[in-house]
């Protein structure tokens, strides 16, 4: 299972890249994409939307089911990965790269301390 060291993770299997808090990329983990399998559709929020940590702000759909995506941190959505509209399978093939979903300008970076680092997320999965 691929769990990159530089990211932070939620119990609900989203990841966030904390190194660029003005536009922090968010996606779902390798474990999540493997559980979902066959991502076929994403419903992403509009740029400018204000999200609160823990809020369901996007929907990811496999053939079988629709699942909510929860915001790992509060802030404003400053970018949305439009390429996923045509290629939702990028979430499966490259969950930490081309499969990023939104970028959030963090309003309260201190919230990140409540997330898991790579080591504790690996432990959580095991």
């Amino acid at each position: 299972m691929n769990v990159p060291d530089h990211l932070l993770y939620c119990d609900s299997h989203e990841w966030i890249d904390p190194t660029t808090p003005e536009a922090a990329p968010v996606g779902v983990s390798d474990h999540a994409q493997e559980e979902l399998t066959d991502v076929v559709y994403l419903e992403l929020p509009a740029v400018g939307r204000i999200v609160k940590k823990g809020e369901a702000f996007a929907v990811i759909e496999s053939v079988k089911a629709a699942n909510d995506i929860y915001a790992p941190a509060s802030g404003e959505v400053v970018a949305v990965n439009e390429a996923l509209v045509e290629s939702p399978e990028s979430v499966n093939t490259d969950p930490y790269g081309a499969g990023w979903m939104v970028k959030i300008r963090l309003s309260d970076p201190a919230e990140l301390s409540g997330l898991k680092n790579a080591e504790s997320y690996r432990e959580f999965l095991s």
Binding site: T37, D38, V63, K64
Partner: peptide, 9 residues
């Protein structure tokens, strides 16, 4: 079993 490798495959 609901799936093995994936529904689409």
């Amino acid at each position: 079993p609901i799936q093995y490798q994936g529904i689409v495959a």
